[in-house]
């Protein structure tokens, strides 16, 4: 489903050069859930953002469902329809109601009729347990509720892959569970997912593979059972000691 070959992303400023993603290659199969962990600044977000072209990379290849996203003939907007993304800070559209947040892209991008888009939106809002807030504005919702709306918004495009960038990091602790539950359900339904998170419990329970990133490189790529018990890399060991 996702194939990444020798991906390199460099941020260059007047007085700094950061190799945010440094020669990363990996594959994510259909229906696979991959959790990416690593210290802050290790390039997890940048890696994820390269997968849907939010970040233009310097070298390497990202192939989504057979399409090279940096190809000269590739319509990036068409690729992004198939790749949903959930952000740390939700990024709901504050001037639209919850329902409109979920229907807007369906109407604009997928060209669905209002009735069809509404029906789909209500079904998804029901699925994430927030249908009764359909006509509220996002600012009236708690963080956990907003993040669930954001998940519904991404799912409304019928994506083939879902990317999550620390979806629970901005939440109060008591709201983390409700968002993780939605993600676990998605995983059970066979959604292909790449998840950056610090929730080790989620990684252990749901992930098929864990990638450990540090300084732009993937240092470990292992099933959670092995990663959490016997990591090879000293830096992964040090990281786990800190977070567990």
């Amino acid at each position: 489903m996702i194939e990444v070959n020798r991906l390199i992303k460099i941020f260059e400023g007047r007085d700094y050069v950061v190799r945010a993603v440094d020669d990363v290659s990996t594959r994510i199969a259909k229906g696979e859930v991959v959790v990416i962990i690593g210290p802050s600044g290790s390039g997890k977000s940048t890696f994820l953002r390269c997968l849907n072209g939010l970040e233009e990379f310097d070298d390497g290849q990202v192939i989504i469902d057979g399409i090279d996203i940096a190809g000269s003939k590739t319509n990036l907007n068409a690729v992004r329809r198939e790749v949903g993304m959930v952000f740390q800070h939700f990024n709901l559209f504050p001037h639209k109601t919850v329902l409109e947040n979920v229907t807007l892209a369906q109407r604009v991008v997928r060209k669905r009729k209002a009735a069809e888009a509404n029906e789909k939106a209500m079904a998804l809002l029901t699925k994430v347990g927030i249908a009764e807030k359909a006509n509220e504005y996002p600012s009236r919702l708690s963080g956990g509720q907003q993040q669930r709306v954001a998940i519904a918004r991404a799912l409304a495009m019928d994506p083939k892959v879902m990317l999550f960038d620390e979806p629970t990091s901005a939440l109060d602790p008591e709201m983390v569970g409700e968002v993780l539950d939605v993600m676990k359900q998605l995983a059970r339904e066979g959604m292909t997912m790449a998840v950056v998170t610090h929730e080790m419990g989620f990684a252990r329970e749901v992930a098929h593979r864990v990638l450990f990133m540090d300084a732009g490189k993937v240092l470990e790529d292992a099933p959670p059972a092995r990663f959490f018990t016997a990591p090879n890399e000293p830096r992964a060991q040090a990281f786990l000691k800190q977070v567990l």
Binding site: L54, R80, G84, F87, F93, A105, V108, V109, R153, M157
Partner: peptide, 9 residues
Amino acid sequence: EAARSLGMS
């Protein structure tokens, strides 16, 4: 970014 990630131009 949220809008672009949904496929909007």
